[in-house]
């Protein structure tokens, strides 16, 4: 069993090349504001999105609402 922590360690060669590849392919931190339109089943994550923004507008409300709308799967 591979130790998954090793691949998340930026100093680990596999983890580093994976991180570089993902970032280079357009998937880095805060890519293109995708988080604002990405929906999650996780209420904690949805909460975190709200906490990031001092003036929660309807976009965040929509986000939280969709968390539950999607739960039908």
């Amino acid at each position: 069993m591979t130790d998954h922590h090793s691949t998340r360690d930026p100093a680990h060669p596999a983890g580093l090349s994976r991180r570089r590849f993902l970032t280079g392919a357009g998937c880095g931190i805060g890519t293109a504001g995708v988080a604002a339109v990405s929906l999650t089943l996780d209420p904690a994550a949805a909460e975190a999105v709200e906490l990031d923004r001092p003036e929660p507008g309807y976009r965040e409300t929509e986000h939280v609402k969709r968390v539950y709308a999607l739960a039908r799967f």
Binding site: V34, L39, L70
Partner: peptide
């Protein structure tokens, strides 16, 4: 980590629009 979080965001975007 940020780049893994980004993957989750893209999956979430696709899930939302396809659901």
């Amino acid at each position: 980590p940020g780049e893994e979080r980004c993957r989750a965001d893209v999956y979430g975007l696709l899930a939302a629009l396809l659901a």
